[in-house]
Design a protein around this nucleic acid. Sequence first.
DNA 1: AAAAGTATGTTGGAAATCCAACAAGAGGAG
DNA 2: CTCCTCTTGTTGGATTTCCAACATACTTTT
Lengths: 218, 218
Amino acid sequence: MLKELEKVKDSILIKGIKTQELSSMLGCLRGVIKKYDKGETVISEGDKLNKFGLLIEGKLQVVQYDYLGNKSVISVIEPKQIFGEAFAYVNKNSSLDVEAIEKSKVLFLDSDKLSTPCEHCCTFHKQLVKNLLFIISNKNVNLTQKIECMSKRTTKEKLLTFLSLESIKNNSKEFTILLDRQALADYLGVERSAMSAELSKLRKDGIIECEKNWFKLL
Amino acid sequence: MLKELEKVKDSILIKGIKTQELSSMLGCLRGVIKKYDKGETVISEGDKLNKFGLLIEGKLQVVQYDYLGNKSVISVIEPKQIFGEAFAYVNKNSSLDVEAIEKSKVLFLDSDKLSTPCEHCCTFHKQLVKNLLFIISNKNVNLTQKIECMSKRTTKEKLLTFLSLESIKNNSKEFTILLDRQALADYLGVERSAMSAELSKLRKDGIIECEKNWFKLL
DNA sequence: AAAAGTATGTTGGAAATCCAACAAGAGGAG
DNA sequence: CTCCTCTTGTTGGATTTCCAACATACTTTT
């Protein structure tokens, strides 16, 4: 198990923790590794979570079924990322499903053990708590920014809000983004073709320049 | 200062902490109380935060200015609620403003001191960390649900998604909501009048019953 | 190099939303 | 009670988005 953990030792969750501490950490947090084949369910809607997951290898998908039963993909989990922590710490049953889309290996850690340092006050606990607070707060900031974009009424405004935020993040009027057109449209909650048309208009109106993933605000 | 803190001793942040521990907590977390008059700025965009706030009395507003300079209210902070914690823990400058909309009193706590238990391993630290993780995770879940609603393409779907989630929360097909029509429209990111019309249609089609803040899914 | 697949841009009609203005009802203040 | 304000519902035309279909360019496969 230790060997598995070392594969992800530069993940944000365990960043700053000494290699020699990893072993006692696994014991302290009751680490368990589980393996999933492609298509298997990792977490089901309604599950009570007292552990959260750290993906060691493979790929997972967080999905949701709406009131009509339509499936939608909320996010994709890559190795070194954690998942399920929000439900674990609100003590609420999961409202999402997590499925393996590749053969995957997951390390589960006890959420309570992490937040409650043991009697020995192990030094790694401090670091873990810091790291976890960083991860969750960061998600929070990102979700808030997404909402900021989505709450604009027109596609043009959504785009400009998004691009303006990216420009600030990159500290430059020029930048590249990670999303392709379809992913950007999904992120903003609009139609890809309509967004594409709007991008063309912004370009024609001299408000932006762009090509593929590269953008420049004028 | 201790007297002020006792006013909010049933806040989620300090829930479960013994009264006799509050005093040492204030010292440990370098608590500072600041007072603001109506209209004063509590946090400015760009501020580097190493403390987060716990509102003791008054009322605050979290606002944001978009790329055109338009002001929009992100949320309202009521007594016992905390604010600024996300930016404090991601070590990122605030991208939001916080303003006092009433004469207010705020207790600031050092975010680093909270996440890094002192040598004495004070028992209240454990509880604080747990409480904080709960609060932030909870915000996370709520933001995700809001995104779930907003990402639907039509007003009808947005409404039904929202109502379906409320129904689940209340564990009943019948429930009342806290938002009035305008607030609900803002939450879903649609026009109030269009939403009102859609509600009427849903009622006419026999999909829901509603009156004011009361709803029933059929 | 041909073929198949993927990403992006374009377009036109159908559908939905926005916007502004007004109507109806409830509740509060004088 | 009357006046005023606030909330909610209604309506119609302007605007925007959606949707489906197709064009083009670029990649990968064979």
